[in-house]
């Protein structure tokens, strides 16, 4: 089993990677682009961050900067023209909001997976950096006490057993941290096909019924 990496992954970085590479987000984005093409929308008026889609119509009430502000999926908004284009606007925005939903859910999954990963990482690190060395130090001191006939051989052996148990616990924690790492990697890719939030990926079929 490889040793623990020197530093844990950062949450913001994990979210950024996920937004870039998750398959469900990419699919929803393709869906949005296809929608625009199908509707013949060409005259871009401005770009907005779909993760702050409220900004399309109104500013956020408190105008606060939220966590994850640096992460964005920028989409174009178009010149909707007159009222005849209202349907096209609604369809386009529906696809945009579906993209947003997918992205929000994806980030939620990543955060969940990251927290599980971080707890497992911290536990393994605590065993490696604190508990195992402390146990070793206690064992060293116990041996010195045994040398001085301050304790007997049974206490020495019992302590040695405790030391072995602490190393086993570290190995278990290390294993758990690699499992959590694998779960996080999975979350960064998204659950292809079998995802609980697979609705967006399924959308192209349903949403494109009118193609």
């Amino acid at each position: 089993m490889p040793d623990l990496p020197g530093a844990p992954r950062e949450l913001i970085e994990a979210e950024r990677v996920a937004v870039e590479q998750r398959l469900d987000i990419r699919a929803a984005r393709r869906n949005l682009d296809a929608e625009a093409e199908m509707l013949g929308l060409t005259r871009i008026t401005r770009w907005v961050n779909v993760l702050h889609i409220e900004g399309i119509r109104e500013r956020e009430a408190d105008g606060s900067v939220k966590r994850g502000f640096e992460i964005g999926i920028n989409i174009p908004l178009f010149d909707w023209g007159d009222a005849r284009a209202a349907k096209a606007e609604a369809q386009y925005l529906q696809a945009a909001l579906q993209l947003r939903e997918t992205a929000v859910n994806a980030r939620s999954e990543v955060r969940e997976a990251w927290h599980a990963y971080r707890i497992a990482y911290d536990l393994a690190r605590h065993y490696r950096d604190e508990i195992v060395p402390l146990r070793k130090r206690i064992s060293d001191e116990q041996l010195l006490r045994y040398n001085g006939m301050l304790i007997g051989v049974f206490e020495l052996i019992a302590d040695s057993r405790d030391q072995v148990a602490s190393i086993n616990a570290y190995l278990q924690a290390l294993r758990d941290s690699w499992l959590a790492e694998a779960d996080l990697q999975q979350a960064l890719l998204g659950q292809v096909g079998a995802g609980r939030r697979g609705g967006v990926i399924a959308m192209p079929a349903g949403g494109a019924a009118g193609h």
């Binding site: 006490r145 001085g148 006939m149 301050l150 304790i151 007997g152 051989v153």
Partner: peptide
């Protein structure tokens, strides 16, 4: 200093 509980061997 000695351990009074050290077992006799």
């Amino acid at each position: 200093a000695m351990g009074h509980a050290v077992p006799t061997m």
